[in-house]
Structures are given as structure tokens and as C-alpha cells.
């Protein structure tokens, strides 16, 4: 059931510098102290003077008392300065839950296999969905995740997803680097090329988040391969 958005106050419990591009932010709720949301939804953070930025929730809805965010702090991004200044203990105000990149009951009935595709921090809402499906709901459907990053130095959560694959045999994951180093032994290039080689039909559901070009390409590709347009869900910001 969808919850009406409301204002929240939360405290920064932890802020981990993952690498020079990404930060992981753990917000512990103060008032209200619980947030009911659907995996895939986002929050709108008050950055002061009326300015707001939207961030997808990366944690599972079962957390309830907290939200975790994966934030791109690349210089020039409007929210990057805000997060660079943020310290543990600081208070943050946001509105939540927001957004429609969610899996409804009707989607669950129609979609027997799932394709998840993300670029960069677009992984956040898909991680929330994957945790929710695998760990909280024990979903046994085939889940294929493709995640595109640029450089080796951008990589994170690869161990977490590898362990998920070991624990949940229905979960398959490929990390793609578009700018790999020479002699890179793993997958290089764009997710689109990998997806092109796969077969799809009208029982698939696709959930896409990240770069708008990726979304357009993957959307067109899977629709051409038989996935109904109504079963292609996406979020163009992340």
C-alpha cells in the first residue's frame, strides 16, 4: 500500500566515503521515527533556501527506522556540496516516500522474470528492490542485474552482490565497466550489449535507473524483444 508523503527529520548516523565519486549515507529517523515505503521510492531532501534534491532509498523497506542513500558527490552536482559538509550527528529534513519506480501486485502477477539495469548511483533503488525481493520476501523469480560504472576506482558493492548471488541462486549479477583498464579480466563495455544477446518475452519485467540514454536504449531494446511497454519501469534521475 502506498503511503502519503510527509516531512521527516533524521540524523546522520554514518557517512562512508566509498570512493572519490560515491558516498553512502545512513540516516536514522527522529520524527516520525518510522518510514513506510515501497522499494524503489525516493526522498526529497531540504538543502536550505527552498532547494531540494531527490535521492533514491538504497535500503530495504524492512529497515523502517532508517534510510540509506548512495550519493554521487562529483563536483558540480547541486547536492554534492551539501553532502560534503554533512557530518555524523547533523540533522536532515526530507519529504518521503515519493516516486513510482515500484513493483505493484499487478506487476508481480505479470512479471515472472526480472531485468534490473542501472548506471552509477542509479543502483540505489534497484538495491532496495533486490534486498526486499530476495531477503524479505524470499522471491524465487529469476533476477538479472546489470550495473554500469565507468572506472575501476568507481566500483563498490561488488562483494555484496557477489555474496547475494552465492546465497540466492535465482539472482545473477554483472558489473560492467565502460572505461576499463587494459587487460581487464571481467566484463567491459555497456550493459546494452550484454542485454542484446539475451532472449526476452512478455513474461519479463524491466526496472531501469540511471543515465537517460541507457534508459532509452534498454527500453527500446527489450520492447523490441517482446517485453510489453507497461512492464518496463524506469526512473530518469537517481
Amino acid at each position: 500500500m502506498e503511503t502519503k508523503p510527509q516531512q521527516f527529520r533524521a540524523k546522520v548516523a554514518e557517512q562512508i566515503i566509498i570512493n572519490e565519486k560515491f558516498r553512502f549515507v545512513h540516516l536514522e529517523l527522529i520524527e516520525p521515527d518510522r518510514l513506510e515505503f515501497l522499494a524503489g521510492q525516493y526522498i526529497s531532501i531540504d538543502m536550505g533556501e527552498g532547494y531540494r534534491r531527490s535521492y533514491s532509498i538504497a535500503s530495504s523497506p524492512s529497515e523502517g527506522h532508517a534510510v540509506e542513500l548512495c550519493v554521487d558527490i562529483t563536483p558540480g552536482h547541486k547536492g554534492s556540496q551539501f553532502f560534503q559538509k554533512l557530518k555524523p550527528g547533523d540533522e536532515v529534513k526530507f519529504i518521503a516516500p515519493l516516486g513510482r519506480l515500484v513493483m505493484t501486485e499487478a506487476d508481480k502477477q505479470r512479471e515472472k522474470q526480472l531485468l534490473f539495469v542501472a548506471t552509477g548511483s542509479g543502483i540505489a533503488p534497484l538495491r532496495s528492490m533486490i534486498l526486499d525481493l530476495l531477503e524479505d520476501k524470499g522471491d524465487k523469480r529469476l533476477i538479472r542485474l546489470f550495473w554500469g560504472l565507468r572506472f575501476v576506482k568507481d566500483m563498490f558493492w561488488e562483494e555484496e552482490f557477489r555474496l547475494k548471488h552465492e546465497s540466492f541462486p535465482n539472482f545473477h549479477y554483472k558489473l560492467m565497466l565502460s572505461k576499463p583498464p587494459e587487460k581487464w579480466p571481467l566484463l567491459a563495455g555497456y550493459s546494452t550489449h550484454e542485454i542484446e544477446a539475451l532472449e526476452f518475452d512478455n513474461t519479463w519485467g524491466a526496472y531501469l535507473c540511471g543515465n537517460p540514454d541507457m534508459i532509452t536504449e534498454v527500453k527500446e531494446l527489450v520492447i523490441k524483444k517482446g517485453v510489453p511497454e507497461a512492464q518496463v519501469h524506469f526512473e530518469k534521475f537517481f
Partner: peptide, 11 residues
């Protein structure tokens, strides 16, 4: 507009 629907949720 990208259809994020935050406006619909809030107002």
C-alpha cells in the same frame, strides 16, 4: 517533466 510524480504525491 520526467514523470517522477513527486508533485502528485505532495499535492
Amino acid at each position: 517533466c520526467i514523470g517522477a510524480a513527486s508533485c502528485v504525491g505532495i499535492a
